[in-house]
Structure formats: C-alpha cells, structure tokens
Design a binder for these strands. Structure first.
Lengths: 219, 219
DNA sequence: AGAAAAGGTGAAAATCATATCACCCATGCA
DNA sequence: TGCATGGGTGATATGATTTTCACCTTTTCT
C-alpha cells in the first residue's frame, strides 16, 4: 500500500487536483487541469489521470463530468485521544537474550499516537537502525524506529521488521518459506539471508510502524 | 445572514445537496437531485435551485457541470493542550500567502524535544512532503517534516529546506548563488530550479529538522 | 541498437448536463 | 373570480466533458 512513486509531472497533476479541491470543493475537468499545466490536449491529461489511478492516488468515475475522486482519506490526527505515549528507547542486545531489551532502556521518547498506527502503546518500543540495509526504502543507519513487539509467526510475508542479529538491531523485509526465516534487504550491496526459526543468533522483534530521523547533526 | 425561510420542498432539496457533498465531496447534477427527490424533469430541479439561489443558500455557476456551490461557511476550531511540544500540522498554501500557513492548521502532533534539535518549539511546525524530489535522501512524499521557520538569508548553503512552491510544499537542498535561490533535488527524475529572491511563487519556510514516516498503512 | 515508458498533439465521436420553452395543476388570498 | 406562487412534466437545443484514435518526441533501461 505504500503508494507507488510519482514522476514530477504526475505529482504536479495530482497536487493541482488537490489544490483545486481545496479551492472549489469539487474536482476539476480535464480541460481545467490542462489549462493549469499547459497541456493542450485533454488526452494528455487523461493519460496522467490513468497513471494516477493505476498508482492508487485517485479514482475515476467513467463518463462522468468531473469524475475524479481523491483516494487519500486524509487521516485526521484527532481520531485518537490526546494522551502522549512515552516509548522506551532500547539499545542493542545480544540476540540470545532478547528479553533484556526492555530491562535496560537507554531512555524514552514521546511519540504521537499517529505513529503507533493503532497498535497498543504497551507493545511498542523504539530502537535505532544498525545498518543501511533498507536504504532504498528510506531507512538509514541511526534512524529511530517505532517497533511493535509481535511474534514472527503472526507476520504476513513482506512485512518490514526489526531484527536482533547477533548484537545488532537491523531492519529487513521478512518472509517465511520452506521452514526458514528469510531476511531481504533493500540495498543492492547487502546480502539476503535465511535462518532457522530458533537460531539463537536471530530474533525477530516485530514490524516497524514508523521511522524518524534527525537531519543536520548526528542523531 | 440567516436568510429567508425555505419551503419544505426547497429544504429537502437543500439538505440533499449537503448530504451529497458530505458523501461525494462534490456537487450533484440536476438529474441526481431529481432522482433522489422523485422529480422527473431537470427543469423542476432547476427551479428549486433558482429559488435557493435567490434566497441566498447556494450559488450557481452557469453552464457548468455540477455548478452548485454551498454559500454556507462552516469552520471548525479545535483545541489542544501542551506538555510535550505540540507542533501545528500545517497544510499546503498558496506560496503567495505563506502567512496563512499557521492560520489554517490541519491539526497538531506531539513531538519529542529530541526531534526539535534545540530549536525553539514556537518556531517549529510540521508539514508533509509534497513530492519525491528528495527520495535519495530518504524523504518521500507524505513524510511528516519538522520545520523550523527561519529566514533564508540566515541559512548556510546546502541546508535541506521546506519550500512553498506555488501550492505545494516540497523539500530541496538550498543554496544562494548569483543573486538567486537554487533548489536542488536529490532524485534524478526531478529538475533543479532557481528563483529570484522575491518570486511570489517560491517561499522558503526554513530548515528541516526531522523527518517522520508511517510505514504500512496510509500516511 | 532497440524497446519501453513518460508525455504530448489534434480532432472526431459519444455522453453528460444545463438552459429554455410551452403547458399543467394545485392553493391561497384579495 | 382572478391571478400570483410553488411545484411539475416533457421535449429540445446547446454546451460542457469525457473517450477514443492515430501519431509523435524524448528519455531511460536493457
């Protein structure tokens, strides 16, 4: 569901539709979009809309005037209560003793409920990415990760998870095939690996709910 | 303001339009109104709309598909307390009116002081990246950005900044050369651009202090 | 070198929507 | 009685919008 990336041009079409919605409370026509972005043929616009629909950004109602609907449901941060969860900031631990994770926290961070994605705050903790194995996904070494503790057997294939590998905390895409845990990186220079379910070197903590990063200085 | 009274029939037409707006985020056609209220002729509906316009409940745009606008201006305020820094979540605004940024917030997010990097909480706000122009830096469309409002003249070259470009909020690497603002993307498919310091289309808000992203679900 | 993919142009055909005209029927008053 | 007002029917004219076709250019990837 992480929306497919848009090209620069597609993005400006999409943003124009949103802007038009904000201003007029209704969708623009193909011609209006074209006028705004200097596309003379409604067909050119139509192709952009088709791409946006394929990528899941909009929905079209065929043959209908202004038949464009935004798919984004603009999640409002107020759907939650106003309590601020304080999550433990944990440090790397020998994967043979994953239970030590919570017993030796390095601190705690306040986190808006939005970033817990409806998970129980008591099941969540914060760790830091130990390598750049998921850099193509925009997760870099040092990033703060909101992790939901959950047994790997309940995870759907493809979930992005935090893993204690020996004494490092890393992020990988998880899948369970042929009786083994497969950890797939998103960075060509990192290797894919597989482990036995009970390998003491490898402990899957649970899915990554959010990623946070300080820019500028060192985290 | 509280306009002239409506007849029962006129009121149900009016209420239907409002209901349609809530459900579809756009105005209905004459035929749709007629179908809903068992009026077979679009002319019958048209007369109702004319009456509603006369009485000041709606506005019509001639010859335009779904050319109905509600005249009503409903605003909804909100409140929040502050213990942990609570930063305004702002939405994109026409760059010609950057001052509107804070005046029309979409909400607020609690943010740990760590991610404010020692900046004054009152100078900070949260916006969302409007494109993938900095994807190589791990900043993607939809990411939440902690932005420190600061005049661009005080920014060192190379700072990663949030910019209001027309009606989009985007992230770029900033530099000031030969009397022009240069905005450098970190994604090969996006173009580098430069603007005059006072170009009304381009307003630099300030440096990005942190980036946050929800995984898995909708942002 | 060749083939996709992104982005377009232009114009005709097919629909969807609105505007208008002519006419009908109640009801409430002066 | 007389006639203005609210509510409607149906048909037609006139736009406004979306679709579809046939081709074209540039950039990117293999």
């Amino acid at each position: 569901m992480p929306p497919i990336r848009l090209t620069e041009r597609q993005n400006s079409v999409y943003e124009h539709i949103r802007a038009y919605f904000r201003e007029h409370s209704k969708p623009p026509t193909l011609k209006e979009i074209g006028d705004a972005l200097s596309i003379r043929s409604t067909n050119g616009v139509s192709k952009h809309l088709h791409a946006l629909e394929q990528k899941g950004y909009i929905r079209r109602i065929p043959n209908e005037a202004r038949g464009i609907a935004l798919v984004d449901t603009g999640a409002d941060p107020f759907a939650f209560d106003a309590e601020v969860p304080s999550l433990l900031l944990v440090s790397r631990t020998d994967s043979a003793h994953p239970d030590k994770l919570r017993s030796r926290p390095k601190g705690a961070l306040f986190t808006d409920p939005l970033f817990l994605d409806r998970a129980d705050e008591d099941d969540c903790l914060i760790g830091r990415a130990g390598d750049d194995g998921m850099s193509d996904l925009g997760i870099f070494k040092g990033d703060y990760l909101v992790i939901e503790e959950r047994r790997w057997r309940r995870l759907p294939d493809g979930t992005v998870v935090a893993v204690l590998l020996r004494d490092a905390l890393i992020v990988r895409q998880f899948s369970f095939l042929n009786g083994r845990l497969h950890l797939q990186p998103a960075n060509k220079s990192y290797a894919k690996d597989a482990y036995a379910p009970r390998d003491p070197e490898c402990h899957v903590i649970g899915p990554i709910l959010s990623v946070m990063r300080k820019l500028g200085g060192k985290g």
